[in-house]
Design a protein around this nucleic acid. Structure first.
Lengths: 106, 106
DNA sequence: GCGGAATATGTCGCTATGCAATATGTCGTC
DNA sequence: GACGACATATTGCATAGCGACATATTCCGC
């Protein structure tokens, strides 16, 4: 996991949180919007990914004033944001290569 | 699998074959070059992915004139090429969204 | 105030995938 | 003939995604 190629679901979750902190369900809907309805995460995917991202400290849980149960918001850690930007840079480069390669020939 | 988000290894394999037909080992080296040494596929990944791509008819085996043993070349099918181009377009759009999102805020 | 849709969080079990390890073989060259 | 590069393949493990299931709350219309 040292060269970290993020999977699509995880990338979209992080991008969703890049805009502002959100709680799980909100991420779900945002990812759907962001991808024009193409990516619909199952809750299994979402909460599994969130747990892993918490473990790796890409994101952190935000204390909700009240709300003893339900809705807990997550936000990117500074470290998570940094790594996400690296990931995006990586993606851009890959996209550049991909465009060159895929277009060639019929 | 109807919305097909290709994984990085598979995408790189297909991009490698987009340039010209290659045999397995050649793909391995090409992917490494293409990614500036960042992605080094294990043979397990490679041959597993090739088998799946053959099954799904994204690629096909090319008859080698002689070469009774070893080296068998693979090439993209027309269908595979079409799907690859769709994938790349998808990636470009995702990268666009990602750039916008990831850059905002600190 | 009743019911249903939307909001909200979570687990379980299956399957698919990536990968290290292992195995085997050829070819050229020192 | 030994070693490194070339070449193909399988096996076994760990993980990730996802559909299905399980719950609970909130809000709105009737």
């Amino acid at each position: 996991m040292q060269t970290l190629p993020l999977t699509e679901p995880v990338l979209l979750i992080l991008l969703s949180l890049a805009g502002r902190p959100r709680h799980g369900y909100s991420i779900l809907k945002d990812v759907e919007r962001m991808s024009d309805g193409r990516v619909v995460l199952s809750t299994g995917t979402l909460y599994g990914a969130l747990r892993r991202l918490l473990d790796d400290e890409w994101i952190e849980r935000m204390e909700e004033k009240e709300g003893p149960r339900g809705r807990q918001a997550y936000r990117l850690t500074p470290n998570g944001r940094r790594k996400l930007q690296l990931e995006v840079a990586r993606m851009k480069q890959l996209t550049r290569v991909a465009s060159l390669r895929a277009v060639k020939e019929s």
